[in-house]
Design a protein around this nucleic acid. Structure first.
Lengths: 328, 328
DNA sequence: GTGAAAGCGCTAACAG
DNA sequence: CTGTTAGCGCTTTCAC
């Protein structure tokens, strides 16, 4: 490993000059700076981050804790996080809690310990987020907290209902997700807007956020006598579509279906799903911005102690929604 | 932050005793050890990994470099990597090269520098993998290299062809992936087995590994007069299925389709895809095992310098393949 | 069985 | 503008 000492020796200067030439070029003679830079490059010197971090009382890394990395939703968030972290020269420790609340809490502690701060995506353990863990800032995604980033679920629900209303639907089912889901809770509250618009809503669930969960809701949806359904997420929508079809219900001719999350899955299935989504990568970016903003040694306290960001929801209209057929 | 000094002071011992009591309990009096352990727990002491690493010349972290984390394939691998790393008390820096070969090389260098070793999944830049980067071991997934883990593509292709043969198919298309893909190259070579089995193969492509790539192959597949197609991956299969359907070809009645990778997508689409897969999580696990095996300070040189693991492929038979219809 | 001290690589005073 | 020095938190000889 090439260290400052190696570079210093080769350049005929002291180690502090090397350190300065690379970190604070202004404070070093141009000539010296160039020479040091050249030799450092030649030797392939790269500062040891652990050592720098130890000195600075930082680790140079952020933590990202997700319930399930296989879920495209979190993968997208992770990409946004990684992107911004890289811009700041920070690494990202990605950890998967396997949807286990207990493990989540444990991982959060250990992650907080070996990073400068963590981003907690869609926490499954409610108590996890609360105060800065071990003095490290924690930004929560899809949950309330002092530092929070989320999608505008209410706005998204409104988009979905307005879309269906415009197509003539007046009685709609909401196939909800897990009872512990913050997003689901927000969406259920937002169902009020449906009433204002003159759309009657039948709220179903809780259901598991899986294909089986969607399939399990099929009978209830059919029995509810609705012409459209909004589901907790795209996967549930896929399960619902499949199951109602087996019962002879055509989508979208007999039943329009709107998913949530607008994952790439929505575009792949047949019929392609109309879905309420958000720029997940942007969610990751913003969460990271927020976190990085709390890291500065100076000015850190100047930042307001809390900050919540609500990113706009969008509606991707595809083939799973259609006008209500004329009554015969 | 709680340090060894805090624990030492509270326990009335020296810092070295604290360190030993926690790391090498045998070398400390039972009584002392218990007292130190109790106080450490009470104070919530957790060793600073950066400091320990600095001392040991290690970082305590592994790097995982993937082309695209949104790809369920790599997400699954990542989960396996994270699992094993955690067992060894190692963190995982996950980095996404965004499918950019140039960026990949750059990221690999920087990642190697701040970790004890890296796992390089499906490298897009061929020159990236070669020798240990900066003296750090590199395990490659889906590529040749001194330390490599991959899926048995030849075996997988054989499974697919045998399955189709058993269904009566005698003329089959292979819709290949990107020219630079190692997996694709392996599969094309493996097409020989088809001949031995008495199945004629029409190799198409290269095509992009996307829905559009699959759709682009539709005309060629139809024109080839085949009764079945094997595709580079599930996404390509989805694109192919969609596009041939628009041309009035039914799947599986008129055309059987076999995907590759057996991602969760395969089970979600309609018809559900028959797909050649592997335990991706296990691929991640094995790659990590291999890497961790090269880390030990002692015995590191005792390990053979190279090691290649080929994990078995499996065939998940679903609804997209069916017997060849009787000639009329 | 325990303590004192050195040093991993780096940066930030503090001198010059 | 540059060099010397201390010390981040930890582990590990080396003494006792």
């Amino acid at each position: 490993m090439v260290t400052v000492r190696d570079v210093a020796r080769a350049a005929g200067v002291s180690i502090s000059t090397v350190s300065r030439a690379l970190a604070v070029p202004d404070k070093v003679a141009v000539e010296t700076r160039d020479r040091v830079a050249a030799i450092a490059a030649e030797l392939g010197y790269q500062p040891n981050r652990a050592a720098a971090g130890l000195r600075a009382g930082r680790t140079g890394a952020l933590g990202l804790l997700v319930p399930d990395l296989s879920n495209p939703y979190f993968a997208a968030v992770a990409k946004g996080v990684a992107e911004v972290a890289r811009e700041h020269g920070l690494g990202v420790f990605v950890v998967d809690s396997e949807e286990d609340p207990a493990l989540e809490v444990e991982l959060l502690r250990s992650l907080a310990h070996q990073t400068d701060g963590v981003i907690l995506a869609s926490p499954r353990a409610l108590e996890a987020a609360r105060p800065p863990v071990g003095g490290k800032p924690v930004v929560v995604i899809n949950q309330d907290g002092p530092l929070a980033v989320g999608t505008d679920n209410a706005g998204g629900m409104r988009l979905a209902v307005e879309h269906l209303y415009a197509l003539g639907h007046r009685r709609v089912a909401y196939v909800g997700g897990p009872a512990a889901s913050w997003s689901d809770a927000q969406r259920r509250v937002a169902l009020d807007v449906a009433g204002e618009l003159g759309v009657e809503v039948v709220a179903l669930g809780p259901h598991r956020p899986t294909v089986d969960g969607g399939a399990a809701a099929a009978d209830a949806v059919v029995a509810a006598g609705v012409t459209a359904a909004i589901t907790f997420n795209d996967v549930v929508a896929v399960g619902l579509v499949r199951a109602v079809r087996e019962r002879g219900v055509r989508v979208p001719e007999d039943l329009s279906v709107v998913g949530f999350d607008d994952t790439f899955l929505a575009a792949l299935v047949t019929p392609a799903l109309t879905s309420v989504g958000a720029d997940l990568r942007e969610v990751g970016r913003r969460a990271t911005d927020l976190l990085v903003g709390r890291l500065g040694p100076a000015g850190a306290e100047a930042e307001p102690p809390t900050a919540s960001l609500l990113l706009p929801a969008t509606l991707a209209v595809r083939a799973s929604t259609a006008p209500v057929p004329e009554e015969r």
